[in-house]
């Protein structure tokens, strides 16, 4: 039974990782072949870094992700303070609305926002680009912030805020001295989640970016539509390594925090 379990996990892992492994191996291939490895080279990495389109779209992606997730974090966290003070019924309605962008197919979110932006573009000076992109990203980011921060308010001892006031803090000071440290983990994980979703988003961006502000996923998509280009392999390898490093660091930080809490 134990062996069978191990075999099963091994097979699934192979299924999950082999395709990525193949991409990585062929990113070092001298020829453009996808099946025969004819020699080691770093040529594709060099080409990648000199590919202006990829570099600008990477920059765009970072700008949009940082701006959108920061705004979403502030908007969502502030909203949670208000929502946590509400009664059950309005709270439930708001949480339903919060769930809409999460539950709805991304393509519907994308086209519905596109319809809105087209409507405004025709009547005001709104052009598809960074503004529409960032608005769209905030819209699908902010529910994740709310969903991460709300539970912290629920877990928090409702008297903490009053205790701070009892000990002489005004309302604003009480919030920053006592409530904020309590919800901080939720705010950070909400921000990180929003940031990764923004970095990774293709579908919503595809419908809301226009032609001026292309993000990296959009560029990747355009590249896969064209002929074989091993630069994508190189890009995949880099992204994979970055993801692995980030997750390992994150894991280490969490472990350290756990140890600290346990002693």
């Amino acid at each position: 039974m134990k062996k069978l379990s191990k075999l099963y996990v091994g097979l699934i892992l192979a299924f999950l990782y082999l395709p990525i492994l193949v991409l990585i191996i062929f990113s070092f291939n001298t020829s453009k072949s996808r099946s025969v490895f004819s020699g080691f080279t770093l040529e594709w990495y060099e080409k990648l870094f000199h590919n202006e389109l990829i570099m600008t779209s990477l920059g765009n992606t970072l700008i949009v992700a940082v701006v959108a997730s920061l705004i979403a974090t502030v908007l969502g966290t502030v909203a949670c303070i208000g929502i946590s003070r509400m009664r059950k019924a309005p709270k439930a309605v708001i949480m339903q609305v919060t769930n809409i962008p999460i539950m709805n197919p991304e393509i519907v979110t994308g086209v519905s926002l596109m319809l809105l932006f087209v409507f405004f573009a025709a009547r005001m000076h709104l052009e598809f680009g960074f503004v529409t992109l960032i608005i769209a990203h905030i819209t699908f980011d902010v529910p994740y912030v709310v969903l991460n921060v709300m539970p912290k308010f629920r877990q928090m001892d409702a008297n903490l805020y009053e205790a701070a006031q009892d000990l002489g803090c005004g309302p604003v000071r009480a919030f920053f001295k006592v409530v904020f440290p309590e919800i901080m983990p939720g705010v950070i994980s909400g921000f990180l989640m929003a940031f990764t979703f923004s970095l990774d988003d293709f579908i919503v961006s595809y419908f809301t970016s226009g032609s001026t502000a292309q993000t990296l996923p959009i560029t990747i998509y355009a590249m896969t539509r064209r002929k074989v280009s091993p630069e994508i392999n190189a890009l995949s390898t880099i992204i994979f390594v970055v993801v692995v490093v980030i997750l390992i660091v994150k894991n280490m930080i969490e472990r350290r925090a756990e140890k600290k809490g346990a002693v």
Binding site: L75, G76, V78, A79, C80, I81, G82, I83, R85, M86, I94, V97, T98, I100, P101, N104, V108, T109, V111, S112, L113, L115, L116, F119, I135, A136, I138, T139, V142, V146
Partner: peptide, 24 residues
């Protein structure tokens, strides 16, 4: 007063989630 802090979020969700779906 604290409840009002949810207002910007609610306006945002109304304009960029509800209204677009109504437009669909």
């Amino acid at each position: 007063k604290q409840k009002l802090l949810a207002a910007p979020y609610l306006v945002w969700m109304a304009v960029f989630v509800i209204v677009p779906l109504i437009m669909v």
